[in-house]
Design a protein around this nucleic acid. Sequence first.
DNA 1: CTGGTTTATTTGTCATACAATATACGGAAA
DNA 2: TTTCCGTATATTGTATGACAAATAAACCAG
Lengths: 280, 280
Amino acid sequence: MRKSNVTRTSSLLSGGAQTKNVAVAGVDRITPVVRVKLSNAVFEDLGQAIINGDYPTGSSLPGELDLASAYGVSRTVVREALYQLTASGLVLSRPKVGAQVLPRESWEYGSAAVIRWVANSPARAEFLHHVTEMRRVVEPEAAALAALRADDGQRARVAEAMADMRLAVEREDVDLFKAADENFHLSIAHACGNPLLMEFAAKLRRAVTLSRETSTQAIDDPKIVEQMKKANVYELAQLAIDAHAKVADAILLGNDKGARKAMTALLKEVDHALTLVLGV
Amino acid sequence: MRKSNVTRTSSLLSGGAQTKNVAVAGVDRITPVVRVKLSNAVFEDLGQAIINGDYPTGSSLPGELDLASAYGVSRTVVREALYQLTASGLVLSRPKVGAQVLPRESWEYGSAAVIRWVANSPARAEFLHHVTEMRRVVEPEAAALAALRADDGQRARVAEAMADMRLAVEREDVDLFKAADENFHLSIAHACGNPLLMEFAAKLRRAVTLSRETSTQAIDDPKIVEQMKKANVYELAQLAIDAHAKVADAILLGNDKGARKAMTALLKEVDHALTLVLGV
DNA sequence: CTGGTTTATTTGTCATACAATATACGGAAA
DNA sequence: TTTCCGTATATTGTATGACAAATAAACCAG
């Protein structure tokens, strides 16, 4: 029933994704040059579908052969995708019963893929709330440790991000500001000397960024628009510069307690407002 | 070049694999219940080998066919294992170049498998140090949130773990004590109302437990034995009971600040000593 | 209706073939 | 000689078909 290989390859990203996802229209156009592995594509789509709640906890995914024909790929590809899902803690597949969706407690929220999916799922708002809560626990500590342990190169990167942020405000360059903000927090995370803390802080930060990106279309929320109008952007920018600078200075001086305190203040006072203005 | 590792694994797998290939009549019936998937076994072994440093960063694993023949499995199985490794952030495989080991920064330290491997690797001591550092950041906050948000059932489980711990000391039952300790911390993590915090705290806790388990054979370290002898176990047990009770009481009373403070003290004063006595 | 057996369906594993891709080699041009 | 470019070759990516193993569901004996 399945004949030509080449045409079927392209039918995966369009046809298969259509059936499950909402808007993957642009995806296959973005990556025509870099040939995406089919199993990764299936992995992405199934993972997003599971996390979106299309397959409730405890239910079984369609059989491997069904999935294969639905996506227009071979059973081999489906299996390889299922193994990635298994490693992400989303499913457990057993003979006869199929790949069962595991309860939320066993998903690997730490995994990059899961974060990506959740940040792009209906549960995005709630997730972002939890992420913010965690950032307020983790990032001040990361700043404190960075003040104590950062080497010269790491301190330089913090300083550089700070400089970029000032430059962005000067030039009124929103994109540069976003990038500098991201760099600022990531460079601190990388300087804290604890790989666990580093990875976790970086992932939290990435979750925020992802949510900002994927929620651009949600700006028609009148409440948010109102808040954005009310905000005095320039004032906010100056406030952000000050708050970030206090953190950076403390880190550069090796003042751990000061860095912790400054980062706490930054997250409490500025970051929420920034998030509102920048898109969530 | 990494022959020793492969051959060791091959022998591990040989029990399950050969029974099928050779089709010896009686052997099949000996181990029919615990049938491990071959790909999972290969996944486990390769992951452990990578994290042990057998394959340095940037190097390529042996080719799929080599791995297949080394492990005595089909190429399909090897590929499925490699896909799990990919999802864990350990390798990235490309045509012709093979599966390259990614730098540590991209390993999913949050993933259960990676934690298992690291907790069982030469880097265990250092990892445990980082884990402890993270616990001192995360668990006090989890306790505080649990005091604010735990429902009746969750509070009951905390109280139950506390009661078990008292019982264990009374009966001088070390195993029960370990279990109660584990339950105590896990129940708090589960009661904090933030899935990210819950998962992270639980994984940190699990890393500690795993390290304790896998290091039983390392107790011949004279320094540790000396410390264990010097420790007054009964005194320590009473200290542990008191410290844990303070946390539990604060949580049950909804006193978040008290819970945070008590947990901080617990981790600072008692937990290290406990870890020493219990096996690390 | 109960309990054990059989059946049927699905996953787990293997083998083979071919397509796609990146390294490495070798030849041509400057 | 060096540099550039195409070809060769080895390895991964994908597809297909086959069989073994496991288990849920149907079935039958009592």
